[in-house]
Design a protein around this nucleic acid. Sequence first.
RNA 1: GCCCGGGUGGCGGAAUGGCAGACGCGGUGGACUCAAAAUCCACUGUCCGAAAGGGCGUGUGGGUUCAAGUCCCACCCCGGGCACCA
Length: 823
Amino acid sequence: MPPPYRPTEIEPAWQDHWRDAGTYQVENDDPRPHYYVLSMYPYPSGKAHMGHVRNYTFGDLIVRYRTMTGHAVLSPMGFDSFGLPAENAAIKTGVHPRTFTDARIEELRSSLVRIGGGYDWRRQVMSHDPGYIRWTQWIFKRFYEAGLVYRRNAPVNWCPGCQTVLANEQVVDGLCERSGDAVERRDLEQWFFKITDYAQQLLDDLDQVEWPERVVVQQRNWIGRSEGAQFEMAVVNADGAETGAAFEVFTTRPDTAFGMTFCVLAPEHPLVGQIVGDDRRAEVEAFVDRARRTSEIDRLSTERALDERGCATGAFARNPFTGEVVPIYLADYVLATYGTGAVMAVPGEDQRDWDFATIFGLPIIETVTRPEGWEGEAFAGDGIHTNSGFLDGLSVADAKAAASAWLAEQGVGGPKVNFRLRDWLLSRQRFWGCPIPVVYCEACGVVPVPDDQLPVLAPDDVEFRPTGESPLRFHEGFLRTTCPECGGPATRETDTMDTFVDSSWYFLRFADPASTEVPFRVGEIAKWLPVGQYIGGAEHAVLHLMYARFFTKALSDLGLVPPDLREPFRRLFTQGMIRLGGSKMSKSKGNLVAPEEIVDTKGADALRLAQLGLKPPQDDVDWEDVSIDGAFRFLSRLWRLAVPGSDMVGSTRSGEQRPADLDIRRATHRLIAEVTADFERWSYNTAVARFMAFLNELYRYVQSDGGPHGDVLDEAIDAVLLVMAPATPHVTAELWKRRRGADAHIHVESWPVADAALLAVDSVTMVVQINGKVRDRLEVPADIGEADAVAAALASPKVMAQLGGADPRTVIARPPKLVNIVS
RNA sequence: GCCCGGGUGGCGGAAUGGCAGACGCGGUGGACUCAAAAUCCACUGUCCGAAAGGGCGUGUGGGUUCAAGUCCCACCCCGGGCACCA
């Protein structure tokens, strides 16, 4: 009796082998063509969950497949090991975040090994490693020197739950995307990356990447480019006399400026206090105060009545187009952080302005001719301008250009492009992050820590208080230092960096992990980057991917990576999310089986196969749909047939091959061709279906009357093992070794190539339709001509019976696949 | 509101305009067994029919075509993204 399939015995042995033999270690000067496969490095949360399994199975499949196709594959892994959970655990339990994090990393690393991941562990990086922190800080300093980092006092998003500020990208619907707390507005001195310098490039270069359209669209939306005009408006008295004050407005509709009947400033606009009339001062101050206290979520709400949202200032401004005087209002929907924080209001052509004008009793002027039968309020469509001075008679597009040009001529403004993208707020008031390497000197001001004193590390002897405040703020030994420039007393920055800073360059370090003078050498980067295939969750569509793109462009401009490396990730695949199954969530949550338990019982290969076969990779997955039994059953079937001494096979024939043998040979080569095509197009679920269908066919073959031909069966089994190797690496390796000998290793074999001669078929099933309905199927030669095909179809007894002697009106022949008889 | 996806058996899902439902799960029957499990084999969209065979079927309604799940128009539903950005 041959041994049964026991994955728990064979899998650890192969994992040891891959580690000891360095199967997935790769050198930078490897002569094979280079290919960089990268799965997003995980936050170390402990043992792998299903999301990890799904993500890293796809990545590993590609690594193993590309290795077999003859590439030198860079397959690194690391850990995004800074972040709030470790700090929260520290506050709760008193365990230092490093101790906590190191333990979680070991759990996750072990999980990744146990699901069969093939990585070059020598290249591992961890965000919290002092060796990594040093370079994060080093890069920060290069950005600082290049003017890409600055510090300013700004209204920021403060999450009371996380006790830290958040980037705009981390605020969703006015709530913290992490904790769900309502985000408050605070004014704080904060560090920013000048990502807006790259707004246009970040937009343009999206054309260069092969990414899911969904992600590209999200990035475009986030960057939010809009073209328009910006111009100055003088603040005047009610009688039109200049006050000397002025403000700028941005508009995408300069063509409608003749219809401006008021303008609106953000409550935070710096001019507010200066221009407000004395009789309005109390009311305006109350309004501004209320707006500042209103939470982000309420301020974004469109539910609130407009009359609560706006307030007259009693001041006026002059419309440069008409020379007329219009009142200045405040409204909380005008955002201080977008454009100039001030807008012109044209109620005739903008619905929001129309609503506002109606509430506050302001005039409405139509400057674009309405279409016939127009019954709406504001009209935002195209039309011919009217009531618009020199713009009358022009279309919207022409009037926009003419208005912008006129502004430039007058010297009061001109065309302007605005972006929704804001600078990246990187300060975090947390302990467990990369310290910002600057000190504050009473004499010299802000002084970066010299390179030779990096890394700046947080001290270990800290006390985590439940107040949520960073312990760095109270650690005298850390706080008190001397100024590197004057030697005088100085204090350290206690804020740390957003953890997205760490993940914005880790993929570069992987290419040159041992570099000592610089974080990575340009020449080594050129050997691997850009990443050939990046794999990760769609939830990073905006945040991580935007930041990493920005870093790459900035580093490229600084000469730290090759000048032509403008995009870090050439191809991106975003797999679906794991859902905890809709309404049954609470019930099924208790029954969830952890991946490691499945590995312990059914093996990693069954787990991987179940994930791959379940549904298309980009689809979301319901946890309870992941069924391991079918996958395990299939692998057992494979084993029973392929293991030497199989009791399924019995005796085999040799010598002359029969038609049935040729059929199997054809099926074998079709399998190779089809799986290859499926792998190339990320259709793993159909590839798994092909494995199964092929094995079913082999089972029928070995049990057929004549029995299997030995050579034919060997070829078939070899082929299925090879094409399955990237998907189920352990069982295929074990069977290969048992069939080929102790030194045989399937993962260093070449990917099989289908024999074209065997893919060509000489007879096919031709479908015969009458009026589009299938009436018969005929075996015909593959090279059958049109006349023969029609003749064969008309000769079919079933067709003759259906036609009942009547002559067909038309016959459409598409030999050799189909004949359609129209009667 | 706008922009993307998507609606196919009991379920997950397959299908370059040319055999709808590959493959799996679940189910039914059979073989093996004292029996059960495991395994192997067969069947499994739906309706009519003893069968042969036939009718109907891819969210709804139209259209293009010899032929539509696939293309076009309108609509309904679900999922995701954006949404006071001037």
